[in-house]
Amino acid sequence: MNSESMIELSSQSLFVSFIVLLLAILPIGMAVKSKRVWTSRIGIGVTHLAFLMQLLYFFVRWAAIGHAPVSNMYEFMTFFGIMLIGSTLLIFHLYKQIVVLLFSIPISLIIIGYGSVFTSEASPLIPALQSNWLSVHVITVAISSAILSIAFVTSIIYLVSAMDVDKKTRGARGLEFVMYCLVIVVGFIMSSIIFSFTYDEKIIEFENKGGTVERAIYKMPALFVNDGAKLAHEQTSFGWIELTNSIDAQKLNTIFWAFLFGSVIYLVVRIAARKNISQLIKPLTQKVNPLVMDEITYRAVVIGFPLFSLGGLLFAMIWAHLAWGRFWGWDPKEVWALITWLFYAGLLHLRTTKGWEGNRTAWMAIIGFGLIVFNQVFVNLVIAGLHSYA
């Protein structure tokens, strides 16, 4: 089997696993509501099947391209979503809390769906990426991020179950804002799919801050462009709002459309249901033991934090030294990785020394997940730096 056929097989495995995970939500939801054993067994079995197909995607693609498939946004986010499913299955077998699967699977699908809007083309690695330490660094970061994401999922479950979401308290509004942010990611996926069919991509040229001509491909209507942007070959003005060239305007433009589509989706759901999203999912947590969710949150951070320390800092520094000749350079992504590490260190410190449990741990775990997403999405896509190619 040639490499093209193997890549096609891996892509099909990933797509089928996505559908299988969607189907798994139904029996798992029934198990959460009714506690029937057969629905639980079906849901867990189907989820295991989907995870095996995801692993098939990963290793077949690895064999086809000759290196670990974690070198671009499509590959990294896909692997992140896969590891979230694997971590959730492990948590289920340890704690027997199927409700974690019910909430975790949609988050994984959103992550994989987000990754799917980027190019899946397997291109040769640039020199900075041609190192085994890249694979070690990125794989460890993805696994640790997935485990820390479990803490996010169980924190959501904890807060929804323990909080009166019908009251307009600060906590209820904060929880609903988290739901809104998740819908924004869905908006990004939807906008990318819709514009891929309705908008002819445009190639523009502009002079970057280094004084050289750079090109950008717009797959969505251009509201934001870099200063001096013109259509390639035509040299006519392009876009509405010009931004400094220290910002990736094309990617910021994409984020704007994601917020627009996500906001519309959120409003449609609110108007149709006449409830906010927190109220809609509240019945799914009626049989939840909040103390168990708090325990899982803490254990996930205890496991994920040292792994992130290795992957996000130690292994990253080794790779940076091999790629750029220095261990640390205050690149935007390096800075935010350090901020994320310090935040989770603070969470564990406050938990163990100050007795921060329950609501406080839950909110900190949610903010920590926000830092992970900000680093992997916004810093990667918008802020220019050495990691922008990812």
Rank of each mutant, 00 (worst) to 15 (best):
V225Q: 05
P283S: 13
G262T: 01
F315Y: 03
Q279A: 06
L267V: 14
S278G: 11
G312N: 04
T297L: 08
A229C: 08
T236R: 10
N253R: 01
N253Y: 03
L243T: 00
D331G: 15
R299S: 15
V288Q: 08
I247S: 10
L223A: 05
N245I: 02
N289F: 08
L314M: 14
N253T: 12
L252G: 09
L231I: 05
I277L: 12
K275V: 04
L267W: 13
R274W: 06
L223T: 00
I296S: 14
D331N: 09
T244I: 11
V288Y: 02
G228E: 14
P283E: 06
K230D: 15
L243R: 01
E234F: 01
I281K: 01
F238Y: 03
L307K: 01
W319L: 04
F259R: 00
W330D: 11
N289V: 06
G325D: 15
N253L: 13
N276V: 08
F305P: 01
E234L: 06
R274P: 11
I303A: 07
A316Q: 07
M317D: 05
V288W: 09
H321R: 05
G312Y: 00
G239M: 00
G304H: 02
W330F: 14
K287V: 07
W240F: 15
I318E: 08
V268Y: 06
G262H: 00
Q279G: 10
D331L: 04
A258Q: 02
V269F: 06
T254W: 03
F256E: 03
V225N: 06
K287M: 13
W257K: 00
N276R: 03
G325P: 11
M317W: 02
W319D: 10
N289T: 15
R299P: 11
T285F: 00
S309P: 14
Q279E: 08
P332K: 07
I265R: 01
L291T: 10
A323R: 02
G312S: 08
D331K: 04
I271M: 11
V302P: 04
T297I: 06
V269C: 13
N276I: 02
W324D: 12
I277R: 00
V225R: 01
S246D: 13
I241R: 01
R299T: 13
I281P: 05
F256C: 04
S237C: 14
L284K: 07
K251Y: 14
Y298V: 09
L322P: 06
L284E: 04
Q286T: 13
W328M: 14
T285I: 05
F315P: 01
T297H: 15
A316L: 13
N245S: 13
V269A: 04
N245Y: 01
G239H: 00
I277A: 02
L310H: 01
M317C: 08
H233N: 07
I241L: 05
E234Q: 09
T285M: 06
I271W: 10
K251L: 03
N276A: 01
L284T: 10
L231G: 09
